[in-house]
Design a binder for these strands. Structure first.
Lengths: 334, 334
DNA sequence: TTTACTAGAGTTAGCGCTAACTCGACCCCA
DNA sequence: TGGGGTCGAGTTAGCGCTAACTCTAGTAAA
């Protein structure tokens, strides 16, 4: 066991100041009626003894931990990192701390996290881009009172929601439409693994057909949302389908992986292959050629999610939804 | 206040199972002597009531939170993100959670974090690349029993340490030497803000002089370790000193910012300007031209720091230090 | 038969804090 | 002169858990 420095307790402060514990507690919280004189005196003793409240004791009686859980599939992905930054910043100002749980793109791990994150550990949870199906996710979050999910819809009584302005999956259709308009005819699509739900792909294909854009199921692949996975999927897809003249990717990291694969196969971008990504991370604008992608203000997504969560934590269980705009930013990869 | 789902307590389980609370506690911890029959029965009741231990109550008596604090200057910087990933992964396996504190490159904020991070909140702390001076940092961490710092040295009794193999600041000298050998003669240096300590820069200049590499104080600038700051510092530095034929940056993000500034000023890399970064983030290898930089296995730094911290948390207060190798990876920016 | 141990529990006493109630002194107004 | 309000505290009773000690019946050794 660790040697813990012997900290002063409320009782120590009370004794030293010659008042009751409640008086000290009231001074700390600024509640109740305390004379200026007493308040001043207690403050001096607190200072002198370097008293700090014991979080666990406080939590035990108030049932509040002032800790927020942030669950994301990959904290190495700049997209989530910037959201996290927004969340952390917001909650820091509000006196909450953020506990991080990284599922590492592993659905089982995500389940374990959600299962173990007890109400005695956190006051609320933000779940980003869950890789679980609704059937898996919903039972796991039902027991939590304060939940906000990002990039996912939820039955309204379970928690608030932050999503894109465009209905899910529709972004890829927009991208395809733009590519078609700029003359591309054989458009590949590397989808992120969770969206493998055929519903999504079916929708995508139907929409394309409605727009008279050529459709071919073998042009569509799925992969994990990492650069490495994008690179490997890109290599295979481009080798097997040299006819492709454009690829849409589920996010920037994957798009950039595909870009690397394309370059290695001697393809010129955008002449031979156009590329569209998904969330406008810094790297997207700095590669050559810069990547066309959908803008998303990730920091703002984070602060919005945090704000909606705070409302729930503070007892306002109204359902709120916030939609962030994601316009297509056209750069030189298309 | 939030509606918290009414959770079963130890007492509920004990009553329902017809045993004492201690028996239930023993079953949970696998300690003490319990008959197989009782154990089985208690487990069933736990399952049935969906009992989960109350963390705060446990912490209050054991003084252990099973929470680790991770303090970094910028969680948006992939360098720290990957370290964090290593830390989180390691501690997750060990049954600890990680609390995140982002100082946002703001020394005052870092101080506030370290001051508020009480032993009643975390069992130990990892401090990455602190932007504080030793004089500021040391008093703040003295009160914590379990500390590991990354990229900083520490009096041995205060905590363990993970640093580069090369003495601090020496990396820039290595980079300069390499640049000189490849024919560069007017070498700029964009240092990170904390290292502004003139000691560091003096050392750098002395070493260069010893190697007969031209030295000029006005070629050296400092900036915050972000892409944006690197970009802006680069713009100014390159405009004022068109004679520069190489720039060394404190980290990759800054180097890439300088690269962008150089490209905008019409400089060709590496023909007109050679560039060296600092920590080999993914983006460094994906820009054109790929950036020469120092390799660092960030995930491994994270797991090593976590391992050293766990030892301290578990009561082994021996001083350990781990040095990670950082070799120069030569790419096309030089 | 007594002693002595062991397996398998139970009992007691807090950890440090706060919610909710209580209490005395003082003042104001009818 | 007594009823009621306010100020500035204090008292009581836990929150849910675990460390450390106690207790009892059964068994083995002397």
């Amino acid at each position: 066991m660790t040697r813990k420095p012997q900290r002063a307790t409320l009782a120590d402060v009370a004794r030293e100041a010659g008042v009751s514990m409640m008086t000290v507690s009231r001074v700390i919280h600024g509640t109740g009626r305390i004379s200026d004189e007493t308040r001043q005196h207690v403050r001096e003793i607190i200072e002198k003894l370097e008293y700090r409240p014991n979080r666990a004791a406080r939590t035990l009686v108030t049932k509040r931990t002032y800790m927020i859980g942030f669950v994301a599939p990959d904290i190495t992905n700049p997209y989530f990192t910037e959201i996290l930054q927004g969340v952390e910043e917001f909650f820091w100002r509000e006196g909450y701390n953020v506990m991080l749980a990284n599922s590492n793109e592993n659905p089982e791990r995500e389940k374990a996290i959600l299962d173990q994150l007890e109400s005695t550990m956190v006051d609320g949870i933000i779940v980003c881009s869950s890789r679980l199906s609704d059937d898996e996710l919903i039972p796991l979050i039902e027991k939590h009172s304060a939940i906000v999910v990002v990039n996912r819809n939820l039955p309204h009584h379970l928690g608030s929601v932050v999503t894109t302005l465009h209905p899910r999956g529709y972004r890829a259709v927009l991208a395809a439409k733009y590519l078609y308009e700029t003359g591309r005819r054989r458009i590949g699509y590397v989808n992120l693994v969770r969206s493998i739900s055929s519903v999504n792909l079916d929708m995508f294909m139907q929409e394309l057909q409605a727009l008279h854009i050529p459709v071919n199921p073998s042009w569509y692949a799925t992969c994990k949302p990492t650069w490495q996975a994008g690179y490997e999927t890109g290599k295979v897809l481009l080798a097997e389908h040299p006819e492709l003249d454009a690829v849409i990717a589920g996010n920037d990291l994957v798009a950039l992986g595909v870009m690397r694969a394309a370059v290695e196969q001697g393809l010129r971008i955008p002449q031979d292959l156009a590329l569209i990504g998904g969330d406008d991370i810094l790297m997207a604008s700095q590669v050559t050629p810069p990547l066309t992608t959908f803008r998303s203000d990730k920091y703002h997504i984070g602060t919005m999610a945090a704000e909606l969560l705070l409302r729930r934590v503070e007892g306002d269980l109204t359902y709120y939804e916030h939609h962030y705009d994601d316009v297509l930013i056209i750069r030189e990869s298309t």
